[in-house]
Design a protein around this nucleic acid. Structure first.
Lengths: 339, 339
DNA sequence: TTACAATGAACAAACGATTGTATAAGCACT
DNA sequence: AGTGCTTATACAATCGTTTGTTCATTGTAA
């Protein structure tokens, strides 16, 4: 059995509360230097480690935050999670990471689990099929920060990125290279991020007076296979697009590349490709990818700070949405359209 | 405030203990169907969620396991972690993931934190500078499973991979292609995994009667930069190696590729490359990589099951070491030696 | 009718901390 | 010596559960 406060107290010959006060001596209650030292010595000798569970129960504060993301295997989220964990560590918070796999039910389950564990706050990249549970979280005043995906009708702190603008920039780059038939490989629809990217795409088409072909908009998920399948479909179309913007992230893009290669097409000779892509493999691919990438550490930092502020402030912190820019890097996967 | 057991009890007009027994009714104590139903109904109506903290305190069981790895950004660990989280979820355990960044002090800090939080067990990929804390963990009978890296003098359940053999197979492949000067890009030394891979390398050299050149053994870490720097040094050597085995994983390998390219060399024309590499980017790289990869899900499963058995068994479970095979996949980064 | 099971539910003591309040000792001052 | 302040520590309640034990009620057999 581990040593408890009581053990230490008995060892020194004082009351447990005295030991507690010495250990967290931010009080106005004064303890004499002599007992203070004796207790500190005993703590060392007995190798006393406070029981967080008991502490959490009594103080109603667990020094734990919950972090719910779709999938930690996605390099985008992996980096964000990692940064949040680091900051948690620096600030004495433990973070519990949960992967929803885009499953709304799981999200709810995790949320309840975290609440039941008494987390001090939650950072959430929601599945976005439903938002009732989020509303009720806010009503209960649980500190909450949304990342990547938000609900425009719900007022809550969040960190998002400049989705529409990034796509406009990408389209603009392609237009400059002479592309007119630009396809949009979506990733899962109905996700805030994707909706906005698509919105950027549409705006850009309008801006550059390109014809909009709804068949050029494909994609139903964030997995490798989704990207592969959607691109296959795309490549069966009659006037082939000359460029693709892949907005579903690394996995989808890899799937797309596979499909393109299997169709005997060359990137960028036959088809240009711009991808939302976050891992550092981009420059090492067969055709180094022209990418839109995120400042993922920054996103993690903003989210953590937003949450910490809510946790540590006594009064309600007004909701604030931080928007983080993206980075556009031109490599070899985009070139002038032939003919 | 959340509803408590007491609230439910008061609502129904029974004693809290009765409610508790209804909720975890595995007892011999009988509760009448009538009150049972009434309580269940009240639980629903009041939306009662048990307080895990209180539960953990009382039962001395937290339904939490700790998972300490060097870095979740490493695809190898990422996948293992993910699988363990899944299994945790399936078995009602929450897992807390900690990243040591190969820092022994952090490992210790995390370990204490986890213990203090009352985790039911720990899965650990140790930094391996020190093992005292691990010994003391075992003495305290904390359920523990080591992954990837073990201490041969400490008896504890663990999951490792077939390191030496994989390298022997790799060298054998290179020898068949006519390679005689094979370099070994190490990754951080003094790590069990690496020691064994190096051991395999040495054994293979002996087996195939190749001359051993200590200058061909380089590398001091697991980061991109480490791989880059070590490879740079390698490429300054006078008789250039004709092949490199990169044992430091994805990041190191990427660093190596960068260095090779910057030196104006071509893979595999000028230099063949076999890498321990786990992400699914391997086939998509400029030169699709010949790789040694892991069955990472399997590793996660073995580790989790080993731990769960320890946690759930009342009596001491004898230590068991599971060894998981690797997968050797030949792609385009290895070819016949020229001249 | 008495005694004794069996049943169903209440009681109360933990688990290991924190924290508001009470108390004892010491001292100064009148 | 008595009063009133500090100062340092002890006391006890509490957080929300679980669980061994006790208690009351009912039913059954002698």
């Amino acid at each position: 059995m581990a040593t408890t406060l009581k053990d230490v107290a008995a060892y020194v010959g004082v009351h447990p509360s005295t030991v507690s006060r010495v250990l967290h001596g931010k009080e106005n209650l004064k303890i004499s230097k002599k007992t203070n030292d004796k207790i500190l010595k005993a703590v060392k000798e007995l190798n006393y480690v406070p029981d967080f569970t008991a502490r959490a129960l009594r103080m109603k504060k667990s020094f734990t935050i919950g972090l719910i993301v779709p999938d930690i295997l996605n390099p985008y989220f992996a980096r964000i999670v990692r940064r949040i964990e680091q900051l948690g560590f620096d600030n004495q918070y433990t973070v519990i990471v949960c992967n929803t796999e885009e499953d709304q039910e799981k999200e709810l389950l995790f949320l309840n689990q975290l609440i039941s564990r008494g987390v001090d706050g939650i950072i959430l990249a929601p599945v976005q099929e439903n938002s009732d549970h989020i509303v009720s979280l806010i009503e209960k005043k649980t500190p909450l920060v949304l990342i990547d995906r938000i609900f425009e009708d719900i007022k809550v702190s969040s960190v998002i990125t400049n989705n529409a603008e990034s796509v406009i920039k990408a389209v603009s780059h392609l237009v400059n290279l002479g592309h007119k038939r630009i396809a949009f490989l979506r990733g899962q629809k109905n996700i805030y991020t994707i909706i906005n990217r698509l919105d950027g795409y549409n705006k850009a088409l309008k801006k550059f007076k390109l014809k909009r072909n709804t068949k050029y908009i494909v994609g139903e998920g964030f997995e490798f296979e989704d990207g592969y399948a959607a691109t296959q479909k795309l490549l069966e179309l009659k006037p082939l697009p000359t460029a693709i913007i892949s907005s579903g992230g690394d996995l989808v893009t890899l799937g797309a590349i596979k499909a393109i290669k299997e169709n005997g097409l060359n990137i960028p000779k036959d088809i240009s490709l711009i991808a939302f892509f976050d891992s550092l493999y981009a420059p090492f691919l067969e055709t180094p990818l022209t990418t839109i990438s995120h400042f993922r550490k920054r996103i993690g930092e903003e989210a953590f700070n937003l949450l910490l502020k809510q946790i540590e402030s006594k009064r309600k912190v007004p909701a604030k949405t931080v928007c983080v820019d993206t980075k556009f890097e031109i490599r070899k996967s985009t070139t002038k359209v032939k003919s």
